[in-house]
Simulated assay, not measured.
Amino acid sequence: MVNQARTTEVATFGEVMTLFYPTTVDPLRFAHRFAKTVAGAESNVAVGLARLGHRVNYLTKLGDDEFGRFVHHFLRGEGVDTRHVTFHKTAPTGVFFKQRQPTGDPQILYYRNHSAASTLAPSDIPEEFIASARYLHLTGITPALSATAREATFTAAQMAREHGTTVVLDPNIRRKLWSAEEAQETLLRLAQWADIVLPGIDEGRLLTGRDSAEEMAAEFLNAGARLVVVKLGQDGAYYRTNDTAGTVPTHPVPTVVDPVGAGDAFAAGLLSGLLREQPLPDAVALATRVAARVIEWVGDVEGLPTWQDITEDNERITR
C-alpha cells in the first residue's frame, strides 16, 4: 500500500535531551557556570532540516517536567512539527553533560537510564506519521535505548516499506548503550529495510568487517540499499549506488571547536540536497558543508545553517 499524500518531507524519531556544557574549558568538577541547550541525534537532524527550509515531523516521549517543556518549546521554536511529541507522567527527560577539552573530542556524561524516550514502543508510532513522509530517518541510537524502542524502530521501518516511504539509516553507534556484537546484529538487520545507509568509516568496519569504503558500500548495496554514503572524516565522503560512485572532499574548516553532531548535520544536508533534487555529488557536497559549519560551534545545533546562510556562502564563493 502506497500513500501519495506526502504532507511531510522527513519524519524522524528518537531521544532528545537537555544538554549542559560549561562556559569555560574546565573539568566539570571545576565548572560553575553552564549553558543549557537541546541535543539528540534525530532531533539534531530535524532542526537542521527545518533551518534549511524543510517540513520535518519529529516524534518522541519527553518527561512531564521542566526539561521536557524546555525541549518541546525549543523544537517548536525551530519550526519542527511536534504534534507527535508526548509527555510521560513518571519517566524523566534525559540529560547529559559535555566536558569541553582544550584539544580533541569532548567527554560526554549521559543521565538517560529509564528516560521517557526509552519507553517508546510500537504502539507509539502512528501509521500516519510514516505514511505522510517522503523520507523516514532512523539512527542506531533508538534501538539501543530499550527492547521496546528497538521494536518501535523495526515497526517504523516496516511501515515505511508498506507506504513507499524512503528509509534512511545512520548507524550512529553508541558503545555506551550496547555491545559491538549487539549493535552489529541489530543494525545489519535494520539495514535490510533501508534504502539509504550513512555509516562512518569506523562504523562501516564494525558492521561489515570490510576496511575500504568501496567494499563497505558494496555490502550494504547487496543487502538492498539504493545509496550508501560513507563519512570519511577529514577525507570527505564516498558515495555509491548501483550505477555510480565517487568521493567528495571535505569542506574546509578554519577551526574545529566541537565535532559532536557533525554526522547529524551531514544527514540533514544530504537529505536537503536530495529533497531539492540536486545531482548526487552536489547533495553530498551540501552535506559536507552543513557538517563543517556545525563543528565550528559549541553544541550540537548552534551551528546548523539556514538555507539563506548556504545561499550567501555560494555568493561569496562565486564572487
Rank of each mutant, 00 (worst) to 15 (best):
M1C: 11
V2Y: 15
N3R: 14
A5V: 13
T7C: 06
E15H: 09
Y21W: 15
V25F: 02
D26M: 08
R29E: 10
R33S: 05
F34D: 12
F34L: 10
K36E: 01
K36Q: 12
V38I: 03
A39K: 02
E42P: 09
A50T: 02
H54R: 08
L59W: 02
K61C: 02
K61R: 14
D65N: 01
G68A: 05
V71I: 10
H73D: 10
G79A: 14
T86E: 06
K89R: 08
P92C: 02
P92S: 04
Q101L: 11
T103Y: 07
D105G: 01
L109Q: 08
N113A: 09
A121Q: 05
S123Q: 09
I125L: 07
P126M: 04
L145D: 06
L145E: 09
L145C: 09
E151R: 14
A152G: 07
A157D: 11
A157P: 15
A157G: 14
A160R: 07
I173H: 02
W178G: 02
S179H: 11
T186V: 15
T186N: 14
L187M: 10
R189S: 14
R189W: 06
L190R: 10
L190M: 13
A191C: 13
Q192A: 15
I196S: 02
P199I: 13
G200F: 07
D202I: 04
T208N: 09
R210N: 13
S212N: 05
S212V: 14
M216G: 06
A223M: 15
L232D: 05
D235F: 12
G236I: 05
A237K: 01
Y238W: 12
R240H: 04
R240F: 07
T241C: 07
T241V: 07
T241Y: 07
T244G: 01
V248E: 01
H251Q: 06
H251G: 00
P252F: 01
V253A: 00
T255R: 10
V256Y: 00
P259D: 00
G261K: 03
G263M: 06
G263W: 01
G263Y: 03
D264Y: 06
A265L: 08
A267I: 12
A268M: 03
G269E: 06
L270N: 05
S272G: 08
E277I: 00
Q278C: 00
P279G: 04
P279K: 10
L280Q: 06
D282N: 05
V284M: 00
A285C: 00
R289L: 05
V290T: 04
A291E: 06
A291R: 02
D300C: 11
D300M: 10
E302S: 09
P305I: 02
T311N: 01
E312W: 11
E312A: 14
T318W: 10
